[in-house]
């Protein structure tokens, strides 16, 4: 689907203003096919706003977002076919059985019943919830819901998965499992735009990282490159330094 060398996602001079507040102040980045790209930065840096704009649920004040040539602003309906979004705080319909929730989402994404059934099969497998999929979502724990939602996000095999804090609320074992799964899907060609506060997770998962603070990208590179540039031992130190820089920018 993706022409060789062409990025799956292109973000150009993207800004978002809420009144006087500039949440995102002109950022550019690209995500290649099969690449896991992470946005990291302090609270209020503009990460979630950026992800929401890419997910077409917020309209940019200016700038461009292109996914496989689809324009998120001009043609959001086509853009939504390319992407799948997992918000940081997400829930599911409590009156539904987990499996029916997967079916509902698959039917929304695919007109073709066979294609939808295939997506449900992927979701069932990725969730790892087995028989519990026949239970109502109202009875699910936070961790189970998160696993199901992640399965829901990737089961449609989108060109780009947008994951906001994918493993938040999960225990260590579950988190490791999910990260492994995300990596596997990226190897199979799915691009991932990620945001997380867990530097361990970022370091393990990401091919490239953008450090964002006060609505601006301060540095982009592989985890190794960033550590070198900030002469830090790990990404946490890089993060701390960028956060300080961000505050200075605000002042």
């Amino acid at each position: 689907m993706t022409p060789a060398g062409q990025p799956v996602l292109q973000v150009l001079a993207l800004t978002k203003r809420y009144g006087d507040l500039e949440a995102v102040a002109g950022i550019d980045f690209e995500v290649a096919a099969g690449e896991i790209f992470a946005l990291i930065g302090p609270n209020g840096a503009g990460k979630t706003t950026t992800l929401r704009m890419v997910a077409t649920i917020l309209k940019p004040t200016s700038g461009e977002i292109l996914a496989n040539g689809c324009d998120a602003v001009a043609d959001p309906d086509r853009m939504r076919q390319q992407i799948s979004y997992l918000p940081e705080e997400a829930g599911a319909y409590k009156n539904l059985k987990a499996i029916d929730y997967l079916r509902f989402v698959a039917d929304i994404f695919f007109e073709d019943r066979e294609r939808a059934a295939r997506a449900v099969a992927v979701g069932r497998e990725v969730s790892g919830l087995g028989d519990r999929l026949d239970d109502k979502l109202g009875s699910y724990s936070k961790g189970m819901t998160r696993k199901l939602l992640l399965a829901r996000t990737v089961m449609t095999e989108p060109a780009l998965a947008i994951l906001d804090e994918p493993t938040s609320g999960l225990d260590v074992i579950n988190a490791i499992e999910l990260r492994e799964r995300i990596k596997q899907m990226a190897r199979d060609g799915m691009s991932v735009l990620l945001s997380s506060h867990n530097m361990l997770e970022i370091e393990y998962l990401s091919d490239r990282v953008a450090m964002i603070a006060a609505g601006r990208i301060h540095a982009t590179g592989t985890p190794a490159e960033l550590k070198e540039r900030y002469s830090a031992e790990n990404l946490e130190q890089v993060f701390a330094q960028v956060a300080r820089d961000g505050k200075e920018v605000v002042r």
């Binding site: 077409t56 309906d77 997400a90 829930g91 409590k94 929304i108 994404f109 939602l149």
Partner: peptide
């Protein structure tokens, strides 16, 4: 229930 944000990102008008 925090389902709105996800619903709005689905490919439906």
């Amino acid at each position: 229930n925090k389902t709105l944000e996800t619903l709005l990102s689905y490919p439906v008008s």
